[in-house]
Structures are given as structure tokens and as C-alpha cells.
Amino acid sequence: MFDSFLLFMSADIKEQYKPTARNNMGTRLQDLGYRVTKTTDISAVSVFIQQVDALIICSTIADIEPWAKKCLTHRSLPLIWWFHHEALSDSKCHLDIDIDAVLYSNMTDSEIHLSLQLCSNRYLQRIQWDKERELLLSKLEERKHIDKAKAILCEIKHITEPEAYDFIRKQAMHERKRMVDVALSILSLYPLLVAKGEGRK
């Protein structure tokens, strides 16, 4: 669960939220026992973001995406959007960022606590999904290299695919390497073998 937040909002929006007003989410979070670091200076975010558990951005629909991308370049954190109501807005809410929770100024204390709890859970799930996705992409890339190496072995050694796979596997065990490392060695040597073969013709 979160204990501290970085709250970023532009200077013009800050003017619309008096520190003691009930609609000031930063003050309300402090009243609920959370630590909140507030800034309107985008250049200060890089320092403050290293010391908190989550990032809150108070912005309109139009500004949340660019502000979030600027802030999160410094560190990956749960992103909470404190939605600032625009007087006149026909913006379509199509965002290319991951938002873990949304806060509104008229939320009750219980709703705020619940939203932050859900935010923590969603962020952990999102990080896990990202790790699993990266692992799967890495394995797919490894499989591509192994398949290419098998094709080369089939061509050069005149063997079947299963035999080529078995060759790579045994070589990896013998050299105490991963199969993909053996495959990459084969791929790097292949142009030299081709060039050498052509030189003999």
C-alpha cells in the first residue's frame, strides 16, 4: 500500500484549488495521513519522483497523457489521475498511457482509500504482465534464432530438422551454454562458411 505521493499540477490549475478547500485532493490525502510532495515545476519531478510510492497528476483530459509521459520518463510508478473538470470540453478520452486509478475532488474518504488500494493491486498486476510479456517475446526471439540455425545445419550437414535440433542441444550441454547462444554462434559463422565455400569454386 502507498504511503507517499508526488502530486504534480500545472500552475494555472493550482490556482483553482485553495490549500484549505475540500476539493483539494493533496490536502485531503495529507489529512488522511499520507505524505504528499507537491510541485508545479516539471523540472523538479525528476528529483521528487525518486522519493515517493506513486505519482498523482491533476490535469484535464487533454493534458494527462503528455504530462504523464514527461513525469514517468524518470521512474516507473503507479499513475493516479486526479481528474480536473474542464468548463468546456468535448475531448474524447482516448489515452495511450496506463492509468492505475482516477481520483475526483468530490470523492469520500472511503472512496479515496478504496481507489488507492485498487491502484496498488492494478499496478502490481500490470508490472507482472509486462514482465511475462517481455519473457515471452524474448523466448520467441530465441526460438527464431534456433530455427534459423537449424536450417543452416540442415543445409550444410545434410541432416534433418530433429537432428539439427539435437546437435544444437548437445553442443549447448557440452559448452555449458544456452541453446540460443550456440544458435547465434552458428548464425555468425554461416556467412564466413558461405564465403569460404564460394572462394573454393
Rank of each mutant, 00 (worst) to 15 (best):
D181T: 07
L153N: 01
K177E: 01
Y165C: 12
L184W: 07
Q171F: 10
F167W: 10
P162L: 12
S185C: 08
E155H: 08
A183F: 12
I168D: 03
F167Q: 05
L184T: 08
P162R: 05
L153M: 05
A172P: 12
A172H: 00
V182M: 11
M173N: 08
K177Y: 08
E175W: 12
E163I: 13
A183K: 01
V180G: 01
K157D: 06
D181K: 14
E161L: 13
D181S: 13
E175S: 10
P162V: 12
P162T: 10
S185D: 01
A164N: 02
V182K: 00
Q171H: 09
A172T: 10
I168Y: 00
R176N: 13
L153S: 01
I168V: 11
T160N: 02
R176I: 08
D166L: 05
R176V: 08
L184A: 09
I156E: 01
I159R: 05
F167K: 07
L153F: 09
S185Y: 02
V182R: 00
D166K: 15
L184H: 06
E163S: 14
D181M: 12
I159W: 06
A164F: 07
M173D: 04
V180D: 04
K170H: 14
E161Q: 07
A164R: 01
Q171Y: 14
M179A: 15
E163M: 10
V182W: 03
A172R: 00
M173H: 11
R178K: 03
E175V: 11
D166F: 00
R178E: 03
V182L: 09
K177V: 02
C154E: 10
K170I: 15
H174D: 06
K177R: 06
H158S: 06
H174W: 06
H174T: 04
C154F: 14
H158E: 05
S185H: 01
Y165P: 04
S185W: 02
A183D: 03
L184C: 05
R169E: 03
E163W: 00
R178H: 02
V182Q: 00
E175T: 06
R178V: 00
L153D: 00
I156P: 04
A183M: 11
V182A: 06
M179F: 15
Y165H: 14
I156Y: 09
L153G: 02
A183G: 11
E161T: 15
H158P: 00
M173T: 08
R176A: 15
I168W: 00
Y165D: 07
I156S: 11
H158F: 07
E175Y: 13
V182F: 09
M179Q: 10
R169I: 07
Y165K: 13
F167I: 09
I168Q: 01
